[in-house]
Simulated assay, not measured.
Amino acid sequence: MRVTMIGIGVILLGTIHSVSAFAATAEHATATGPLKNHDDAVINAFEVMCTLEPENFEHISARAQAMVMRKSVDKTEKQSPDITRHLEVFEGNLTTGPFSLLLEKISGPTINATNCGVASNTPNKRAYFDDIVRTLHLSQNTSKRTGSNGNTVTTWDNVYGPHTFLDLTDLRGSDGVLVQLLDASAKSEKP
C-alpha cells in the first residue's frame, strides 16, 4: 500500500507541480496596469490567501467569492479512473492593479493535494524574487528547472512542512510571474 501511495503521489506531483494549467494559460494574469508597489500587494495577497492557514480548497474558494473576485474558470476533470482534478481561477484587482488567483484540488483514494497560487505582472522579476524570499522568510536553498512550456520554475521543498512545495514561475515572454503553494500530503492508510 505504501508503494502505491508513493507512486500516485509522484504522478500527482508531476501533474500539478510541473505544468499547472494556470501557468500554461496565464495570459489573463498579465494585463497591463499600474505597478507601483504592486509586487508587495501581490505577495501580501498570496500570503493571506494561500499561506496563513492550512490549505483548504473550499475555504479559499469561499474567501475569494466573499471578496467578490470574478471566477473565470471552474472545471472538474478525471486525471485517471480514480483521481479527480478540480480547477478554479479567480480574477481580482488590488489598489495597485490586477492579479489572478489559482486553486487546484487533486483527490483520490490515497492523495488529497491542494494548490493555491497568485499571478500578476511585475516590472522587475529579480526584485520580485528577492521580495518573495524576504517577505515569506524563505531560504536561499532552491532548485530550478525549466517546465515543458519553457517557463523557469524556482522551487522550495518542504517549505511549510513535509510535502509542501512553493514554486515561483517566470512566465516566459511576458512580465508575468506566478507564485504557488502545493500541499500534497498523502492520505493516511486505514488499519
Rank of each mutant, 00 (worst) to 15 (best):
P162I: 05
D130V: 10
T169N: 01
T164N: 09
K125C: 08
T135C: 01
H163K: 12
Y128K: 02
V159I: 11
Y160C: 00
N151W: 04
D170W: 04
L136P: 03
T155C: 03
I132G: 01
H163M: 10
T142W: 07
D131A: 15
N158C: 02
N151R: 05
K144W: 04
V153M: 12
N141T: 12
K125G: 06
D167W: 02
Y128T: 11
Y128I: 02
L136S: 03
R172E: 14
G147Q: 02
G150Q: 09
S120M: 07
N141W: 03
T135G: 02
D170C: 00
T154D: 01
R126E: 14
R172H: 13
T155N: 10
D131Y: 05
P162A: 11
R126K: 14
N124W: 06
V118Q: 00
D167C: 02
N121G: 12
S143E: 14
L166V: 06
A119C: 11
T135I: 12
H163Y: 14
Q140C: 00
D130K: 13
N124F: 06
R134K: 15
L136F: 07
K144P: 01
R172L: 12
T135F: 11
L136C: 05
D157A: 15
T154H: 05
H163I: 00
G161C: 09
L168S: 02
T122W: 03
T155D: 07
N151A: 09
T154Y: 07
L168Q: 08
T146D: 04
S148H: 07
G161A: 09
Q140P: 00
V133N: 01
N151F: 04
N158S: 13
T135E: 12
N121R: 15
F129E: 12
Y128N: 01
L168G: 02
S139P: 04
S139W: 05
R134N: 14
G161R: 10
Q140H: 13
G147I: 00
G161V: 08
